[in-house]
Amino acid sequence: MSETNQRYDVVVIGGGAAGLSGALALSRARRSVLVIDSGSPRNAPASHVHNYLGREGAPPAELLAIGRAEAADYGARIERGEVVAAEKLADGFRVVREDGSAVGARRLLVTTGLVDELPAVEGLAERWGNEVLHCPYCHGWEVRDRPVGVLAVSPMAVHQALLWRQWTDDVVLFRHEQPDFTDEDYEQLAARGVPVAEGVVAGLEVADDRLTGVRLAGGTVIPREAVVVQPRFTARSAVLETLGLVPTDMVMGDHVVGSYIAADPTGATDVPGVWVAGNVANLMEQVVGAAAAGLKAASMINMDLVTEDTTRAVAKRRAPFSAEAERRVTERVLGDRRHGLQETR
């Protein structure tokens, strides 16, 4: 295994909005910072970032490129790589990459995000981030007034259909393999003009690289230009698990919608010295929220380091008057007296 003597105040694992925001703040606080980025952002399939004040509509890759340049301008080091493990040491952490190289860190900020796990329906994965969507606040405006289908894969399906009805009056809810809805559900859907399509969804219809419809198992195709589906949101927690942090299931009703790493409001985890920010800790966080969480965690990390630096400075200042120093002085004085080298009064 390749070792290195490099040691940073903070190693940031993950180079998305949360990680780069944290790196920027820490670098501006004159901390030595290394960002290790796997290069696989969650929003890579999306064409634009939305609801990010001042950067509305920016391509995700462009936003990250700007963030990397800004953090680097203040001294942050940014490297491509995959972190496979982290080890707690007496004075910090040892961070190991897939190539076997390792670096040291006084603190860790982990912003590895999550993985969207889609149902096994033909065509969903291929159109994900294009016409297959999940968040109306991220993509609702782009499909406003167009035919939208909601694929029921959880007890939240009726809620999803009613929510997307805000952006278009042409919403069809595909019951797929979910249990039948309640009378109250049907009444609400009818009141909002949302029909329910019975039958298992077999796949999506695509023509000229555009979604055209949803195909049921019986062969019926219902024209749609966008499909909404709720993925399972699984935290990228492998590195954190090597430190003993176990993912927590996020449950809505009786349905597990994903997993996350528990932390306090500042991002501090149960492992002292380890903070998390972004989707790895909050499954519902949008890009701007992830950036804000990275900033908050960074400020707390810096304060933690300031406290440690101060404690060390006080100990160093007191060193000449420590018990050990006094013992040495006493022994020297008594020794001088014993050998008649010091005049007594």
Rank of each mutant, 00 (worst) to 15 (best):
R77N: 00
G81I: 09
V143T: 02
A71R: 00
L162F: 15
L124G: 03
A102C: 10
L108G: 07
A69G: 03
N130H: 14
S101P: 04
R68L: 07
F93S: 00
R94H: 02
S154C: 11
E122D: 13
G113A: 08
L109I: 06
R146Y: 13
D91A: 15
Q160V: 01
G113H: 07
L108P: 02
T111A: 15
A61F: 13
K88I: 09
D116I: 09
R165A: 12
V121L: 12
V143W: 13
A69T: 12
V103A: 06
C138L: 14
E62S: 09
E87F: 13
E62Q: 10
R106M: 02
E79S: 10
M156V: 01
G67L: 10
A152Q: 02
G92L: 10
P155A: 07
L163F: 13
L118M: 08
A72D: 00
D73K: 14
C138I: 14
R144K: 14
R97T: 07
N130I: 11
E126A: 15
L133T: 01
A69E: 15
N130T: 09
R107S: 11
E131Y: 08
A86E: 01
A157L: 03
S101D: 04
E87H: 15
G81S: 09
E131K: 08
G140S: 06
R106S: 09
A72G: 04
E98D: 14
L63W: 04
L133R: 06
E142I: 08
R55M: 08
S101A: 14
A61Y: 06
G75P: 03
L162Y: 11
V83R: 06
G57S: 04
V143K: 03
H139D: 06
R97G: 03
A152C: 06
W141Y: 15
V121P: 03
E122L: 12
V83G: 05
L151Y: 10
V153Q: 06
V153F: 09
E122M: 05
W141Q: 02
A85T: 04
V83S: 06
L162C: 10
R97H: 05
A76Y: 11
G54V: 07
V103C: 06
A152T: 02
E131T: 13
L151R: 02
E87M: 09
A72L: 03
G75C: 11
V83M: 08
R94I: 02
V95T: 05
F93D: 00
E87Y: 11
L133H: 12
N130A: 14
A71G: 03
L63S: 03
V95H: 11
V158R: 07
G100C: 14
R144N: 03
V103N: 01
G149W: 13
G92V: 10
E98F: 11
L108R: 02
D145C: 07
A86K: 05
